[in-house]
């Protein structure tokens, strides 16, 4: 079991030491990674994925449960630490949702009955119901992303989940993060979406290939996060109403804050 991972500082692209000695992350924690393109976000994630031992360009070292990991953890592909979820990912396999989930469960040595559970939880994240006899390739972006989240939560064993830019995914983001972190996974979110970024406990700020600073989410930010999450949920509700061809009423209770601000 992985209770924690530690990142020991390396150096940035210009060879300067990173300004921290160790970043310790516990299971169940949600960490944000922010910074412009080319700032080193992907390299940091790759270091974690490969369990770098001062042998990558960044010279960082990754510890598991405070210790140097066994070599087989680094090289056995079945024991890969990081599962990934991103906006660019699609399902390409030409099979039904149920067949696919059963195949994945079999590959991971898990009970094929997990398929039902995954579909149930995926449906709690999306507005459009997913049925087990649907073909994977016809799923919408929101349905696909929901299924990927639920699949990672229950079938993939990887203790670390990397979420890369899922801001426009059309899923309930807060619930998605809860589902993943609730299963004791460490979550790394690469995002500039304030809804996601402020849901994290800490944010690593990347610059020139190194971690420039580490921000702990403040009380102000937490309050803002609650508000943004409410707005996000309302947007989600309105999007579903539009999708179902409904007329949007400002008086509707589901869009309380919109109502307050527009009609006072």
């Amino acid at each position: 079991m992985i209770q924690s991972i530690s990142i020991l500082a390396g150096k940035n692209k210009v060879g300067l030491a990173e300004r921290f000695s160790e970043i310790h992350i516990d299971a169940g924690e949600i960490i944000g990674i922010v910074g412009p393109t080319g700032s080193g976000k992907s390299a940091l994630i790759e270091d974690i994925e490969q369990l770098a031992q001062r042998d990558t360009t960044s010279s960082r070292q990754i510890l598991l449960n405070g210790k140097v990991p066994d070599a087989d953890l680094r090289f056995d592909p079945k024991k890969k630490l990081v599962a990934q979820l991103s906006q660019n990912m699609n399902f390409l396999a030409d099979m039904t949702v149920d067949e696919f989930l059963r195949l994945h469960a079999k590959c991971r040595g898990k009970d094929s009955l997990l398929s039902e559970k995954v579909i149930y939880y995926a449906n709690s994240l999306t507005g459009e119901p997913i049925r087990k006899d649907m073909n994977l390739t016809v799923l919408s972006g929101g349905q696909s992303r929901s299924l990927m989240v639920a699949d990672v939560a229950f079938i993939s064993d990887s203790p670390v989940v990397l979420i890369d830019e899922i801001e426009n995914a059309g899923i309930k983001k807060h619930e998605a993060l809860e589902l993943l972190s609730g299963n004791g996974k460490i979550i790394l979110v690469v995002t500039h979406d304030p809804v996601l970024a402020l849901l994290t406990q800490r944010r690593l700020v990347m610059r020139k290939g190194g971690v420039e600073k580490i921000l702990t989410t403040t009380e102000d930010e937490k309050r803002l996060s609650v508000y943004l999450n409410q707005v996000d949920r309302e947007l989600f509700t309105i999007r579903e109403q539009v999708r179902h061809g409904e007329e949007i009423s400002l008086e509707a209770s589901s869009v309380a804050s919109v109502t307050e601000n527009i009609i006072g």
């Binding site: 592909p77 079945k78 599962a83 990934q84 660019n88 399902f91 696919f100 699949d151």
Partner: peptide, 25 residues
């Protein structure tokens, strides 16, 4: 692998290992 789901990547990886159990992936 970055454009397919984690699940498909894991299935693909498993199939590679079925064909070549001792390879480094």
């Amino acid at each position: 692998g970055d454009v397919i789901s984690q699940a498909e990547r894991e299935i693909f990886r498993e199939r590679v290992l079925e064909m070549n159990p001792s390879c480094r992936i």
